[in-house]
Amino acid sequence: MRTLILLLSFFTVTATAGESQTLLKDRPGRSQVMAQCAMCHSLDYITQNDTILDRAGWEKTVGKMINVMGASINNADKQTIIDYLAQNYGK
């Protein structure tokens, strides 16, 4: 039951979103970012924080997503994601 509710609701929220309009910069690492981050949230969470976080800030944020928010991202992807965010959306 929980799974069903979860699935339906996930699509509910996805369906209301024009979120496919949010385009991340097409640079190395984008596919990992899209695969991992977009599982739980739209990518405008990244773009709206453009130039606010430096590398250490993005490291902390990605670390929080894994350690606090429960994202299961392996170390290789984690590093790719941090590099991508720091290089393309860093301060």
Binding site: A17, T22, S42, D44, Y45, Q48
Partner: peptide, 8 residues
């Protein structure tokens, strides 16, 4: 004014 789509 949309800030983020999902969560909304």
């Amino acid at each position: 004014i949309k800030k983020t789509y999902r969560p909304p």
